[in-house]
Design a protein around this nucleic acid. Structure first.
Length: 960
RNA sequence: GGGCGGUUAGCUCAGUUGGUUAGAGCGCCUGCCUUACAAGCAGGAGGUCGCAGGUUCGAGCCCUGCACUGCCCA
């Protein structure tokens, strides 16, 4: 074995090496099963008969840098993927990046600005080429960071949302939806970002509370002949500049204050006549009960305008400056216009009042500019429209995929379950999806406008002529598609859809639907919901491998969704660049090691709650890695010592789950039982996405059980002297190494680096597989989870702990031995009690007790033996103990301790008795609960009696 | 305005269908360089589970109300 490990674990010394090795050896590549079914390649692919575990990486933006959210996401996916792979599944994890329309375009535009240029100067074609260039140079840095983290993805299947296969999928999806009548183009109010100069979807608008003003403006009422009557209607608005585009004022039909139906008003500043319309949508309670109507700049007003056939006057350009429709205000920025308009109204005596008013203002998710609702012509997906071919709408299908059917079955299951409700609530109230963006970087919409007939041609192949009139004067639509349109197609497009060649067909059959999606709730609607809509829709057209039509349950893009939380800083604040509290995972990784950071995230990943990332935890898990490292050093040291005297570990015991025979020493039987129990709990936890439980259980096993107890005891069995029993020593060593080896496998999905390194060392650099990641994950055998052995060990450990504590209270120096006396075992050693063979445990493990509790001799006495009455006896839950030590006891301290114990016992006893005296309890509670309480009561009573006696027996002064 | 969470030790968090005396890590206190590990070992202190009611033999867990707090949607 390579046994010259340094004393302290240095993750940086090994992690780069293994990260590169895993990529270089293509360890996690999964071949397309049918393409090469008899491949002998030694990868995780295994045989095609194995069930698959398929998962997509939520594609980070191609401009992205790794942040803690990514790291949490990838840690969770990697743990599950490694776990399933080791559990015998063909585990396929597909990586890739998203072209991220607005974000990437912004990045390159900024670069151009620094050069004193702009995209307009460059022109569309050159600009797009420039972005590709940027992408080749700087894009995908995040994937390199991922490699450093050791994620077990199949790099041979890397995708990019604008590569050729994905572009093909986008075009096919668009054309198909258009043909099905589910994509339309029209003029509607959209959220417009004046900085990005594009429309954005409802989801890309984030709302912030804003302290602004509510201006009340008086609109003069006109009488017959168009003269002002001297009456006014007062309207209120937070955006006075939009009044330039007002085309009506609306009131509720039953509002008695306004018997003015059919009358006109004079729109101030513009001097335009506008009608008063009545509409039940107007709330009479709000403000004055009269609202100005600006159909071109407010979605509600737009709908109202449609109902009343009002004209729409767009008064702002793409940059939110007033356009020529704004008369005297043309050319002013929206806020300058607002100021001037308020000023002018006041000057004309038409400003009725100004109130402070707090309301929500929408900002562009990308650049935080205040969004302007604005009438413009855009492309939409009609998500609620039934397609004849399906008899359902996109949304209906996406609802059916998540809602339990008549048998309570769900095609897609959410964890935590509450997200199912959130999803359904959104999907049931979904609006049409604005998919066009006025950007240059993205999938250009495959539609051509005809200059001759004005109609639109949508086609899979670039057309040469208008499909309607044959004119060749056609130009392609300049808009591109929403980024999420292409990422929403990924579950089908990564497996070759829509191109169904024999090869991609095999991929699709083998890997679609994916098993799981792991992502944050922040993209539940952006991405998860869209994948469900588009996945169900398009996969539904692909028959199953045997030719049968594909049911909904197999059309879904994934069968399960696990939603994780946000990573916040240690004070639960959202990490943000402006706050300066961003924790860079790469920096933390460099400092503490990838394994420690991964373990931190896993151990804190409780479903439903955000993670307050605390480096103190990471420090703790670096210490954990160091602990394992040193356990390995200890083990290897002994393996080497053994080799010198010709003792070798039984190699056949490695690589599976260790077992022990009945005659093995207690600690060996116990640690094997613990290992099996731990494996059982870890597997169960991972099945339920309880990364935190799984991590904590392994931590407790490795540190609390294996190191603290087992290693300390096994030291006594590793006797390499001439007089030793070689067989026993070899068995002890074999159990030691095989349990450690299995524990490494158990830990490996969580801490892949250190486990790889030490696993190689266990096999002296020549392990039976290329990586620990390709070995078998430990599973429990119930026969090896011996509860009796675990009780015996608990007894032994408790006795040692009690003795240590008593030594401490007596202020015995650490390195001095004492004589230990025991009494009262009778109550615990009896058949049927948990500590049935307690006496045997003491006899058989005398040497253990002596070593771990620093005891010279152990004497068992009978209760009340006068020979030992002079000692200071301490009652414990197990047995009374006393130690003989030259120094007097601290009577005051002992009295205080006993008094505290007595109070505690009295409280416990009173509580137990209250219940046991309650007939209803005895009648209704399950027998084992009653029995348990009886036992507890009697034990507590015994302890109480003994503690009282001990207190009474305390001398006025001290005795030994 | 509608909806969904959270409130447990100094801090960050577990606590599965209600069941015996509520756990972990970090921090804190005390003592130890015990031959794998001071990134360690040993021992210890620390909680009326946000508040008030209710259901129940029994409530951290279920119900109602309140307070504080976070998020999503409009």
């Amino acid at each position: 074995m390579a046994h010259d490990l340094p004393k302290a674990y240095d993750p940086t010394a090994i992690e780069d090496h293994w990260a590169a090795y895993w990529v270089r050896e293509k360890l996690f590549a999964v071949e397309t099963p049918a393409a090469n079914p008899t491949s002998g390649r030694e990868a995780a692919s295994g045989s095609s008969a194995q069930p698959a575990f398929v998962i997509l990486l939520p594609p980070p933006n191609v401009t992205g840098r790794l942040h803690m959210g990514h790291m949490l996401n990838q840690t969770e996916i990697d743990i599950l993927t490694r776990w399933w792979r080791m559990s015998g599944r063909r585990a396929l994890w597909l990586p890739g990046t998203d072209h991220a329309g607005i974000a990437t375009q912004m990045m390159v535009e900024r670069q151009l600005a620094e050069e004193g240029s702009s995209r307009q100067q460059l022109g569309r074609e050159k600009f797009v080429e420039r972005v590709w260039e940027w992408k080749r140079h700087y894009g995908g840095a995040i994937l390199e960071q991922m490699k450093r983290l050791g994620v077990s993805v199949d790099w041979s299947r890397e995708y990019f949302t604008m590569d050729e296969p994905r572009s093909l999928a986008v075009r096919e999806a668009f054309v198909r939806l258009y043909e099905q009548g589910l994509i339309y183009r029209g003029a509607y109010i959209v959220n417009w970002c004046p900085r990005c100069q594009t429309a954005i979807s409802d989801l890309e608008v984030v709302y912030d509370e804003h302290k602004g003003h509510l201006w009340e403006i008086r609109y003069p009422v006109l009488g017959d002949g168009g003269t002002e009557t001297g009456e006014f209607i007062t309207v209120a608005t937070t955006r006075p500049e939009t009044m330039l585009g007002d085309t009506a004022v609306a009131v509720h039909p039953e509002d008695a204050r306004y018997p003015l139906h059919g009358k006109n008003l004079r729109l101030p500043l513009m001097n335009r006549e506008i009608p008063i319309v009545v509409d039940p949508w107007v709330s009479p309670e709000f403000g004055t009960g009269a609202v100005k109507v600006t159909p071109a700049h407010d979605p509600n007003d737009f709908a109202l305008g449609e109902r009343h056939h009002l004209p729409s006057i767009n008064v702002m350009d793409e940059t939110a400056h007033i356009n020529t429709a704004g008369g005297a205000y043309a050319g002013l920025d929206r806020y300058a216009a607002r100021k001037k308009i308020v000023h002018d109204l006041e000057a004309q005596g038409l400003l009725a009042g100004v109130k402070d008013y707090t309301y929500n203002v929408g900002h562009c998710d990308r650049c935080k500019t205040v969004v302007e609702p604005r009438l413009s012509t855009q492309w939409f997906v009609a998500v609620n429209k039934k397609a004849e071919s399906r008899g359902a709408s996109l949304a209906e299908l996406a609802i059916a995929a998540v809602k339990p059917d008549a048998d309570g079955k769900k095609a897609i299951r959410f964890t935590p379950e509450m997200y199912e409700k959130t999803y359904l609530n959104w999907m049931e109230n979904i609006h049409d999806w604005c998919i066009s963006r006025q950007l240059w970087w993205g999938h250009r919409i495959p539609a051509w406008h005809c200059a001759a007939c004005g109609k639109i041609t949508v086609a899979r192949e670039n057309p040469l002529a208008c499909a309607h009139c044959g004119s060749e004067k056609i130009t392609q639509e300049t808009d591109v598609l929403d980024t999420w349109f292409s990422s929403g197609l990924l579950p089908v497009s990564v497996f070759g859809w829509p191109k169904i060649t024999p090869e991609t067909r095999a991929d699709f059959d083998a890997f679609y639907p994916t098993n799981l999606l792991v992502t944050g709730f922040d993209i539940l609607f952006f991405w998860v919901a869209r994948m469900i809509m588009l996945g169900c829709w398009f996969a539904g057209d692909v028959p199953l491998a045997d030719g049968r039509p594909r049911p909904l349950a197999d059309s879904v893009p994934f069968r399960e969704v696990y939603i994780h939380a946000l990573v916040r800083d240690a004070n639960r604040e959202k990490m943000s660049k402006t706050k300066g509290n961003v924790i860079d995972p790469i920096e933390i990784v460099k400092k503490y090691g990838t394994d420690a950071v991964r373990f931190t995230l896993a151990s804190m990943a409780s479903p439903g709650t955000d993670i307050a990332f605390n480096v103190a935890r990471t420090e703790g898990y670096r210490a954990f890695a160091n602990k394992i490292w040193n356990a390995a050093r200890f083990i290897f040291m002994n393996v080497d010592k053994a080799a010198e005297v010709g003792i070798k570990v039984d190699a056949s015991a490695l690589g599976s789950m260790p077992t022990v025979t009945e005659d093995a020493p207690l600690e060996a039987r116990w640690i094997v039982a613990e290992l099996h129990a731990t494996a059982a709990k870890v597997n169960e936890s991972l099945e339920n996405y309880r990364f935190d439980d799984a991590a904590n259980i392994i931590y407790q096993f490795f540190w609390g059980s294996f190191c603290d107890w087992y290693l300390e005891i096994v030291k006594l069995r590793l006797d390499f002297s001439d007089s030793s029993d070689k067989t026993k020593t070899r068995d002890a060593l074999t159990t030691l190494v095989s349990v450690f080896e299995a524990a490494l496998r158990l830990l490996s999905p969580f801490m892949p680096f250190i486990t790889e390194e030490l696993w190689y060392a266990v096999y002296d650099g020549s392990p039976p597989a290329k990586s620990i990641a390709l070995t078998k994950y430990p599973t429990a055998n119930k026969n090896q989870m011996d509860g009796h052995v675990r009780n015996q060990m608990t007894y032994l450990a408790d006795l040692i702990i009690e003795t240590r504590a008593y030594r401490k209270d007596r202020q015995v120096p650490e390195n001095e031995l004492v004589d230990l006396y025991l009494v009262g075992l009778g109550g615990y050693g009896k058949a049927g009690s948990s500590f049935e063979s307690a006496d045997n445990v003491i006899v058989e493990n005398e040497v253990v007790i002596k070593k771990l509790a620093k005891v010279a001799t152990i004497t068992e006495t009978l209760l009340g033996d006068p020979n030992y009455e002079h000692l200071s006896w301490r009652p414990t839950r197990l047995t009374d103990i006393a130690i003989s030590y030259g120094k007097p006891i601290d009577v005051a301290a002992e009295r205080e301790r006993l008094t505290r114990d007595i109070a505690k016992y009295e409280r416990g006893l009173a509580a137990a008795e209250r219940q046991l005296n309650n007939d209803a309890f005895l009648r209704k509670a399950p027998p084992q609960v009653v029995e348990g309480l009886r036992k507890q009561e009697s034990e507590t009573r015994t302890l109480l009696d003994k503690a009282r006696a001990a207190l009474a027996a305390l001398p006025q002064d001290s005795k030994p």
